[in-house]
Design a binder for these strands. Structure first.
Lengths: 226, 226
DNA sequence: ATTAAAATATGATAATTGTCATACATTCAC
DNA sequence: GTGAATGTATGACAATTATCATATTTTAAT
């Protein structure tokens, strides 16, 4: 059983408040999983009874809308936690989590998390800050969806993706999303997304390298995002 | 100075976890305000250094978008708290709060709130649950904005407004929003909102009584919202 | 390697939504 | 009470976006 104490990613989440003793307790109760690209970690409506800590790989949080399309609400990366919202609310999850890459995650049962809440005030504060950060992001995202055009949202999203996940040697976005997934992030039809990517390509804002996307003119793209 | 102990609305918020002693402390440090309809409680970018408890009246939380329109992110009613997000994140507010009706609010300084966090675990848990509830609502709202048509969103919003704020004797929605504000909730142009209201009126879903709106056919409206 | 399936791309067209103009009604200040 | 300002309403039109059809390319399975 690997030791949480030596796990680097915990430094990036609320878990960084845990002391040696608590980390030992966590190491004993946790379960590690390998999730293959495309597989779910949990699905909308499930009761998870614990939280997941992402050690490696990125996943998408999606919600199925009435028209059958998956809306991507957030991308989650190594160091972040998953499932806090429903654990704290004591409700089934309102979102599905699906791996965009091969992933390594650890599951920590609800019982231990609740004990940390009760005994470690800094942990509680960290968790609260993290949820508040998500809420701020969600509010910003809402305004963008409500008030910006699809073109503006695409430009904005491409910039965010580069900022958050970086780029490969050839300049293309490191995070690999299908056109359908990208459309699901900006809230539009897949064809509209593809069409706008073509347009951005033609006017030299981006370059399409196969399915990959490279940002060429960051400043123009920024102006386009308003 | 009025006693928080006897204040009914605190029962509806995280504050219900506070004990007698803490309520006395709060009563001593709090400031009460009367806010007139249309006046702000705080504005985007301000640092509030505390939270507000709404005793009476409803307010809107808005965010100004790049195109100059105000997007309404949430309506907040008596019993709810205001400003927790930015207090916990230790950031300026990302939203403005403006009174939709004459309001009575109490301001509780950051210092005392932080002491409650440190000494009262149930209070922390309540606050966390409340923020998590907001996050779930925001996610739902996001999906609705991204995937539903303006018509569907209008239908959905009218139903929510009746459910949350009730109706007057004449059947009209109790909460008074201008067409511009309603448009700001569903994320559309004021004219589009007005046009759809007219259409809903013509086909007997709603009735327009001056500026007020009464829901006539709840079931059809529900089907329209999908 | 060959074929089927899935993803990407593009055109044509329709539906939705925004913008601008204008009219009418209501509210408010004086 | 009168006029200005604001809010509501509607038409005309343009822009945006979705949908359906159909290539083309890429990926996966056998």
């Amino acid at each position: 059983m690997s030791k949480c104490e030596q796990c680097i990613v915990r430094q990036f989440s609320s878990l960084k408040a845990l002391n040696k003793e608590e980390l030992l307790k966590m190491a004993e109760c946790k379960t590690s999983y390998i999730i293959k690209k495309g597989e779910p970690i949990f699905e909308e409506g499930e009761t998870t009874n614990g939280i997941f800590c992402i050690k490696d790989g990125v996943c998408k949080l999606t919600k199925l809308s009435a028209n059958g399309k998956d809306q991507i609400v957030k991308l989650v990366k190594p160091g972040e936690l998953l499932g806090q919202r429903s654990l704290i609310s004591e409700e089934p999850t309102n979102l599905s989590a699906v791996a965009l890459e091969d992933m390594e995650v650890c599951f920590i049962p609800k019982k231990e998390i609740m004990e940390f809440f009760n005994e470690n005030n800094q942990f509680s504060m960290n968790m609260m800050k993290s949820v508040c950060g998500d809420l701020k992001d969600a509010d910003d995202h809402m305004v963008s969806l409500a008030q910006k055009s699809v073109k503006e949202r695409l430009a904005e999203t491409l910039l965010e993706l580069e900022d958050t996940f970086g780029k490969n040697d050839d300049g293309s976005l490191h995070i690999q999303l299908s056109r359908e997934e990208l459309a699901g992030m900006i809230g539009t039809a897949t064809e509209s997304c593809i069409r706008l990517l073509s347009e951005f390509n033609k006017i030299g804002l981006i370059e399409l390298i196969g399915k990959k996307i490279a940002i060429i003119d960051r400043n123009k793209l920024k102006r386009m995002a308003e």
